[in-house]
Nucleic acid binder design. Sequence first.
DNA 1: CAGTGATCATAT
DNA 2: ATATGATCACTG
Length: 220
Amino acid sequence: MKTPQTLDELMLRCRALAGLTLGQLAAELGHQVPVHLKQDKGWAGQLLEQALGASAGSKAEPDFPELGVELKTLPIDQHGKPLESTYVCVAPLTGINQQLWQDSWVCQKLSLVLWLPLLAERSIPVAERVIGTGFLWQPDSKEQQLLQQDWEELMELIALGGIDQIRGAHGQVLQLRPKAANSKALTAAIGEAGQPIQALPRGFYLKTSFTQQLLRKAFG
DNA sequence: CAGTGATCATAT
DNA sequence: ATATGATCACTG
């Protein structure tokens, strides 16, 4: 799948996917559909990346570098409610003195997002899950402010050695949660007294209440 | 049963 | 180990 050259081309392709089931799309692209996602958690996301021509791989750059667009699938139930939080990026736990929100990875990644809702209740077989209507989002000033506030608070805690006091409930819209192979994984971090320690890697996630508001704005 | 913490596959 | 893609599953 060639990468789209313009935003219009990307959105056109995206609209063409709306209403298709994952089974139909997988068949078109020559993929087998897993029975469940327990061992293929990123399967749907990667299928949709391919269908839209996103640059493959796990490079630390937007899905569509030329367009500056980040693609996020958003699993929802039949009422349009998000089923899961949305992973944004890993959180830097060291070397973060005086980083500005505007320069942060979170801010960059969320500056332009193509949200692609996916009817994905667990009771629906994977192959029958239906692709929804994708929409482009840029945070408005209020959303930007909420994100920045949470980010600054979390980053200050991290920088001051408070990593182990942070739990998922901390932010209003943005949260910090484990992002690792398992609970034994370790990465460099800052201890209570400012000393180097090893800690569980974390990632930034958008809470479902936030992504639900984005859906409301887009569809009512 | 929502939300937090844990986990899975793959590429580099 | 760290980055990508996320969902699983236990707990209050």
